[in-house]
Design a protein around this nucleic acid. Structure first.
Lengths: 348, 348
DNA sequence: GATAAAGTTGAAAGCGGTTTCGCAGATAAA
DNA sequence: TTTATCTGCGAAACCGCTTTCAACTTTATC
């Protein structure tokens, strides 16, 4: 026997609405979905009652019925990194405009987590998955992961910000070459020749691309290439920038400008330089990437590369929806721009 | 007439599994839910086939059937703020351990958005909502918002990190008094007497509590209270810390220690002080709140208050689950701790 | 070995929407 | 007025799972 609790207020359903409006559930559903075949008076009445009870149709029921959730899953490496946070926020906004909800997951950059979360999203029956960071950043794609994503792609399209060789993932990617070109043209125009690159890892696609462009830019201006000015066997955080810069200075290298792999690394680089008695930007110019608020917060504020997160996010969502509807381009490049602040200046 | 597309690979269902395992769908469901009443051999066979197809049960169907989604909605003001990002991440982890998924929404601190997102979450039939930041931070609760939340609470429990007077929301809150007490005891022990408070707004609960404790601590040590050392008519960002500190210095005030309302404001305060020729910490000690990486990134690194995000998030999820199951305490305080770094030192 | 108790299993009824189908009434065409 | 077309709407099937119920097997008890 069922005992009713007093405050067991079951959520209202279209049946309740239908009864009170003296129509069939089908009609209520019609007004809910915007189907036009409902007489004006009935539509009005139904809407009034929906309003009265602040009725919200059960998304699970709707999703089950339509076999689509209207959710886009977003898998990032770590929202605590403002780069991901900015991008997620932009996706959230763009998704909303397109009638989608967004579901965020953090992999903390461990592959098992990424695989687990892909499964999790499949289980939620998200309509598409956008992966930002993690395995899709790899210069050479991980076979096991490729296999996993291919399995996922059987039912759910996947969009990535890097690449995943051996899959048909759509790609929306920052034009890292262009970004590095902007930085190099800028620094060289300021008279710099001894330009260092610090932080990151060559096994990451975007970093690799930056290195390629670095050499291209040097060549263009006939500046000799010194491998000791490249230090990309680290990570993307403060500590790494700090350590690698220290090491480079210890080797006796004295660059007049440093391109850090991102804003975090840039702060580490700056700490190192300051500790060694260099002034920024008087003695050494430092630039970063990502235009996170870190670059504004620091003293001096950091010259960096901006991606227009709003636009980037919009492109990602568009790609996801294109993927859902089985159309659209395979690769899209987002053009970065230069943000000049206080950490860079003319070579003295 | 239905035309089948070649690669229209419909996701597999328990019926498919059932057929291949030569059992009924009910049995498949039983093994899925861990129901014990299935003979060992059958269970094994079913599991094998599930494994073979990498079958993931449709969460919407399951949710609809069980009338619960196993999703906890998390409404934050802005993930780009590392405080929220940390907390969200901690919630995500804790939720996972408890068998829940988490759904993040950003209100950007505008009430219409908060209300809209509450509705959105209700529509998704999340099992509970955790609101972190936004209207729940207000010292005096907004009536309209209270009404909205009460309406939501008809169907979905809400947990807040602040308070919402006139609702039965569970609260999990940082002990801001304790936090300020730690800071004041520390600074006073270093010999500081002219201690300023910069940033934030008294209309925010936690800030109000900090101010209350500030005065208490002064009283305890018989230090005179100078209202001009309080500047809490601003916001929680860098710019605000910078501006308010400038104003205070312009008034001729010369505190030997500054408590900034959070790490962002602290960086603004530091910029202002440095520009005015003060050294940190030799001339002025600066402390912040939140122990975000900003406080590690800055030079000097910032002494701050830590909340143990991991634990905080766990408490939030526990409170949410307690709320779902209609039990547990109404209010829980999380105890903060002091993290001493380079931005503070003895009064010279 | 008979009987009671416990363990297994499938059929079927939901969960709350959407959509197809067909009927009835309204409107247009003949 | 009759016939054809269109519009509005309800009945019912379906989306993919869980769970109740009843029937059927096993196992335990005496």
């Amino acid at each position: 026997m069922q005992v009713l609790k007093a405050n067991e207020s079951k959520p209202i359903t279209i049946y309740d609405i239908a009864k009170e409006a003296e129509v069939s559930p089908a009609t209520v559903s019609r007004v809910l979905t915007g189907n036009t075949n409902v007489r004006k008076e009935k539509r009005k009445k139904v809407l009034e009652i929906i309003e009265k009870y602040n009725f919200k149709p059960n998304a699970m029921a709707r999703g089950l019925s339509e076999t689509k959730s209207k959710i886009i899953g977003i898998l990032v490496a770590d929202v605590r990194n403002p780069f991901y946070a900015e991008l997620f926020l932009a996706c959230e906004q763009a998704a909303k405009l397109a009638g989608y909800t967004v579901m965020l997951c953090n992999s903390l950059n461990v592959m098992e987590q990424e695989e687990y979360l892909l499964d999790q999203m499949v289980q939620q029956r998200v309509d598409a998955i956008i992966q930002i960071g993690g395995r899709v950043d790899d210069l050479v794609s991980n076979m096991e992961y490729v296999e996993k994503v291919n399995q996922v792609m059987n039912t759910t399209p996947v969009v990535v910000t890097g690449k995943l060789e051996g899959t048909k993932c759509k790609m929306v990617r920052i034009d890292s070459m262009k970004a590095m070109e902007l930085l190099m043209e800028y620094l060289i125009s300021l008279g710099h020749q001894e330009i260092a690159m610090v932080g990151g890892s060559v096994r990451v696609l975007s970093t690799y691309e930056k290195l390629v462009q670095y050499r291209r830019s040097l060549q263009k201006y006939h500046i000799p290439y010194d491998p000791d000015l490249i230090s990309a066997e680290g990570s993307y955080n403060v500590e790494s920038g700090y350590r690698l810069m220290n090491e480079m200075l210890a080797k006796g290298k004295r660059p007049t400008a440093v391109v850090a792999i991102n804003d975090f690394a840039a702060t580490g680089v700056m700490h190192s330089l300051l500790e060694h008695g260099f002034r920024i930007p008087e003695d050494v110019s430092v630039v970063g990437y990502d235009n996170t608020y870190i670059s504004q917060v620091m003293n001096p504020s950091i010259t960096t590369i901006d991606y227009n997160y709003q636009y980037f996010g919009k492109c990602l969502i568009e790609a996801a929806i294109d993927a859902i509807e089985d159309r659209g381009e395979l690769l899209k490049l987002v053009t970065p721009s230069l943000v000049i602040r206080k950490s860079s200046g003319a070579k003295k």
